[in-house]
Design a protein around this nucleic acid. Sequence first.
DNA 1: GTTCTGCTGGGTAACGTTACCCATCGCGTA
DNA 2: TACGCGATGGGTAACGTTACCCAGCAGAAC
Lengths: 346, 346
Amino acid sequence: MVTRDRQRRVTITDVAQHAQVSTTAVSKVLRNAYGVSEAMRAKVQAAIDELGYRPHNAARAMRGRTFTIGVLLPHIRNPFFADILDGLTEEISASGYQAIMVQSGGRDPAAERRASDALVDRQVDGVLWVAPACPKAQLEKMATDTPTVVLGRHDRSALYDCVLDDDEVGAELVVEHLIALGHRRIAHITQKDTIGGRSAALLQTIRAATYERVMTEHGLAGHIAVAATSYTEEGGYEGARELLARDPRPTAIFAGADQAAFGALAAVHEAGLAVPGDISVAGYDNARMTGLAHVALTSVDQDGAIMGKTAGRLLLERIGGRTSAVRFSVTPTLVPRRSTAPPATR
Amino acid sequence: MVTRDRQRRVTITDVAQHAQVSTTAVSKVLRNAYGVSEAMRAKVQAAIDELGYRPHNAARAMRGRTFTIGVLLPHIRNPFFADILDGLTEEISASGYQAIMVQSGGRDPAAERRASDALVDRQVDGVLWVAPACPKAQLEKMATDTPTVVLGRHDRSALYDCVLDDDEVGAELVVEHLIALGHRRIAHITQKDTIGGRSAALLQTIRAATYERVMTEHGLAGHIAVAATSYTEEGGYEGARELLARDPRPTAIFAGADQAAFGALAAVHEAGLAVPGDISVAGYDNARMTGLAHVALTSVDQDGAIMGKTAGRLLLERIGGRTSAVRFSVTPTLVPRRSTAPPATR
DNA sequence: GTTCTGCTGGGTAACGTTACCCATCGCGTA
DNA sequence: TACGCGATGGGTAACGTTACCCAGCAGAAC
């Protein structure tokens, strides 16, 4: 360990001496605690500003809260996560909270556990867990220790809050849209589950199941074709290659996420096919700015900023003492763009 | 503040009692400190495993290190940052370190300062600052308190390490490529600086200056056209719209970053122009999987994973005690793809 | 005048860990 | 035999903050 000659930092004691009051008084001002006169508050605040005092987070963590919210993201390659984060940041910043992110490693259970442990060890006041892939028991364990909001899972729990979009509605919108355009051979790219068995709580499971249900309802059960890869560009690419190799090949692909749709577009292009001339492609998420993409991908919009903002609010409420569980669901909408059109041959 | 009935967590004292040794001994084992026999180590390790002990990070922060590395990212919308993060994570995970990310807010100086303060307050052992937009003095202030590696800036400092790619080479590759294809009206999209004046340390400045230099060297000074927006999809879109409105309009656009190139493609498409038929577009960064994108964007590759990995190594070295400053530069390569071609009219 | 009440402010003991120092022990050497 | 020394293990005082409790005081109620 290096002994850095960093000058001793300003502590609450320095502030107290400078303002001629007790450390307790300063602490109370900092925490907006009860029992402080206006005069006291002003005096202490002046000393704080004068000395440039900033609370020492680690010391706070030993006794009180850290004013830190931990965000677990599978990875940072999906701009939809950025929307969520922006919403969260907007909501919590006014309350002096700071968000720190940790990559949970997508679909590797060990990495996910390490990441969630890391946040607990760092004593965050609350956790926003985006698209967890672990068993529900692990979520509940986290929730007993730390106020928790789960984003993008459908299981219900009394221990944490849920923020999600109605994936059944969203998936239905896409499939109905493609059917209305005249497509019959509609394929789907989904994400392989890592939890044993197919968990009905995972959004990818719901999107896939809804796809199958709607196809069946329209008498298209025979045309159901699913590639189970992952919600990444890579996964979309491989999934589409697999689907395009079938005979007859699909006239439309519904990718469970925009990132996968982008990968699928690459595969379609590589196969010498035109979008939407030869094949239609639709995605899910519609992150901000995605509409800008030259492709103009048809997608399902599930306002990530609102979801993030809501998650932030729920988290603050939970930190504030709420113990009842809340479930917040947004209703997604279809955003048809140029990547979908009627099939060439009927 | 809620009093959660979380069961008391396992502390070093519990481990010590269980193993019938002193807390000091346990601490030594945990830190791999000098003066511990093999037998002691085994005994303590057994107790740790048995009780499922995990060090309390905040308590560590009060005395020693936190085994945490803070990563400052402008935002998480650029997959190139994901490459960097993956490289870093790979390098540091074996040493028991954990990376936490904070959004520095791109080009808002106040937000950037808040983010960097947040990491210092949280007592991280080291900081990787990606593409900082603040004055050098602020970087050096950070570096005096905390071991620091700066990625993507060209100023030299004795206080922190630098990881960067040779942006001059990279930009030259693109412009020469476009000229070799026969283009003369080549435009550039850059990012507006937020620091007062044009800082030669910023990569966007170097890319832009190199563009102008190469154009001039080829007698094309009269065709120089720069749109100063930002390295985002939005910025690329607006920049391209601005450039396309000029008369005569450019036959090629060199966007300083892939994200901006994607936005530019949208604008080009919107204007009813074909790529590369009517206009060529090239970017910079070449994040993993970007090659998959249906567009097949010509770009400059600057292996982000290697840069992140190196940054991690340098950080660990600095934490270990190195005080001399290191500068690591990768040489970028051109990856020509389908978005660039000879201009239609000569 | 006495008691009660509500409001302010302060004293102090933790929180879990580590750096520093000291005690002990066994062994080799003068 | 006495001494010195390296190796090992432990005691303890911080680190900066907050929760809990108590003291003092002014004003109201009796």
